[in-house]
Design a protein around this nucleic acid. Sequence first.
DNA 1: CAGGCCTCAATTTTT
DNA 2: TTGAGGCCTG
Length: 802
Amino acid sequence: MRQIIIGTMHSDLLLNLNPEQREAVTLPPVNPNGQAQSALILAGAGSGKTRVLTTRIAWLIQTGQVSPIGVLAVTFTNKAAKEMIVRLSAMLPINTRGMWIGTFHGLCNRLLRAHHKDAGLPSTFQILDTQDQLSAIKRLLKGLKVDDEKYPPKQLQYFIAHAKERGQRARELSVGDDFQAKMAQLYEAYDAQCQREGVVDFAELLLRSYELLKHNESIRTHYQERFRHILIDEFQDTNALQYAWLKLLSGHEAGQVNVSSAGSSAVFAVGDDDQSIYAFRGADVENMRLYENQYHPMMVKLEQNYRSHGHILDTANFLISNNTDRLGKNLRTDAGHGEPVRIYDAPSDHAEAAWLVDEIKALVSSGIKRTEIALLYRSNAQSRIIEHALFSAAIPYRVYGGLRFFERAEIKHALAYMRLLENPNDDTSFSRVVNFPTRGIGARSIEAVQDAARVQQCSLYLAASTLDGKSGASLSGFVRLVDHMREATRHNTLPETVEFVIQNSGLIQHYLSEREGQDRVENLQELINAATAFIAEEGYGQDAAAALLPGEGAPGVVAVSPLAAFLSHASLEAGDNQAQAGQDAVQLMTVHSAKGLEFTAVFITGLEEGLFPHENSVNEQNGLEEERRLMYVAITRAKERLYLSHTQSRMLHGQVRYNMPSRFLEELPSDSLKWLTPKAKEARWGGSSSGGGRTGSAWQDGYTRQRDSETNDFFDSGRENRQPAKQIGRVGSASTTVKRMASPPRGNYPFTIGQNVFHTKFGEGRVTGLEGNDADARAQVSFKRNGVKWLQLSIAKLTAIE
DNA sequence: CAGGCCTCAATTTTT
DNA sequence: TTGAGGCCTG
């Protein structure tokens, strides 16, 4: 009854929804027993996921089931959060500013700023981005005199991040061997260093606020009671810590449920297990199943696709059905079949790029805008040759990825000065700018400072101010400079402070005198604009504390300075990447970064074994299924036109490689495909396949890693064991490579890709790759019984069979 | 302390 | 092939 009334009253909100979307939006957040009822929305690609999420919030508010203050909506990217806020503002005449809509990291930062004391942090704590974290780790290792060959900083960084993402502190780790024990010890030392310096890394933001909520009952209860509705986007991308955080906040954590007062909150999770492509950074789809078991959510599947034409959608569905571990979902469309999916088999990477140029020209002259054309690849290295071809053909393009505004060196330098104004204990920032621009403080003086700091148990900044001696003058000069800037800007507005700092630090002057420093000077000027915009858009310090208005009663809430808020903003939102913006340009990006986007025409390039699926993935747990999901994501970006291409030869790591076409091409429905290079398929695959399903053969079992000490005539597909091959390869001179490129690529090997072969020890197999020259020519063979191996053709006892 | 030379490695990315 | 990082020299 109530449902009907609500549906009528708010038909404007629900008007544009299809039945399944409407069902999702209006799922009752309370069950008949009066308890919170959670929901899981399985939202396929292009099914209107964001619309459902935002309409859900609007519906809850408009029907009076919650006030804006009582909603927490969390996303992974700033872009998604922003879009949600914009759409919500368009739906409801409310002030979204005070609402808790943001990224995990943004919201956690807000929480920690507001309760820094309870979280054990200084009010001025700074956030380390990935770069900062790595330099902090290097500094730590140096200080402890740890051999960084044995304990590589990058690896330690990964170790720490992943431990934190699982919610584990150093002491909670179970260490299997000495190496792990040492890593754990270094992790602990790293945390101690961060604590001393008043800095937190990205994972720490989450872990620290998790611990804050866990250990502080009054704060926990406050937020549990406040946020009666928690909504999560891209749920399949959550890691263990994020899930734990969610359980705590929603009152579902075992032992923490506060039935009498707070009770639990209604969680509304939206996700798509088929689009889970971030396992490598800790995301765990398993959270979807855990959620099902622990929250008993009502489930709605959004399977109506509004993006892609029929052939494209069929292709995506057909491919993904090869995955075994799915929650189950099939997209459908009302659009017609549309164009078939076109497949191009190029002889070389150059030819592939040339073909791309031709097709793009044709599409553009047929009236498709260049921004509506995407060129996708599995790895960034593939963009170079495509860029080259586009550039030569004078086709404007834009490459996604790369450095972003707040990650640029000159910007980070300026921010480091500002961070020192806020928090002199920030040794990472100190180290970054103590001698930049150069002021005669070399490695020796810095070492002296570090020693002094260690002895006195104080920050580098403080140590520097007390040091006398040779470099003492320049060191204390630096300290005086920073002190002076702090004093002088005390009563300035944020943009004034930025301007003062970039002038007085000498940064501007330094780049003005540099030959190619003009761009950097402009970027520094732009930083002033960014500060102005930040104040205008975000409001005074709103990032941290604005939502915690007086009277809301969160205990111990503290306000935050505009500078602190801006510095957080700079760390948490790295800004746009250097955009050749504005223009109508073709879009180049990795498949990963294409997630969430859509284009009229999409090219998926480099569909070759070893590239896509990537050769590293076949050794990883469930790696192939993840690669397949990646392919699924790529396909579902296309609205009207989809092109797939692969090449027979490709320059990779400075060597020409010959790869099989991707197995994914074999997993597509032949009825939806159009091969632009006829016969290619039959010739390569022995005509045994007619699309759909994989051709049954040895490599269907995947690449098993094997090692055999008795033979030395192969190198398996693992990188470690490829070393011998590489060394031999280096013997071949550059001129040999050029010659080979000039000659027909496949002629000089005794075997061809796809050919069946027999090896005296490993038995029957199929050639899946060729590389190297002459004496060190090698073949990759997938054996029926012995997995994939690289064989040195001059040694291996390999014969061709029918 | 800057710039040249050598070695080595080489998915995917957000915060 | 390209890029990063380390080391040595002017």
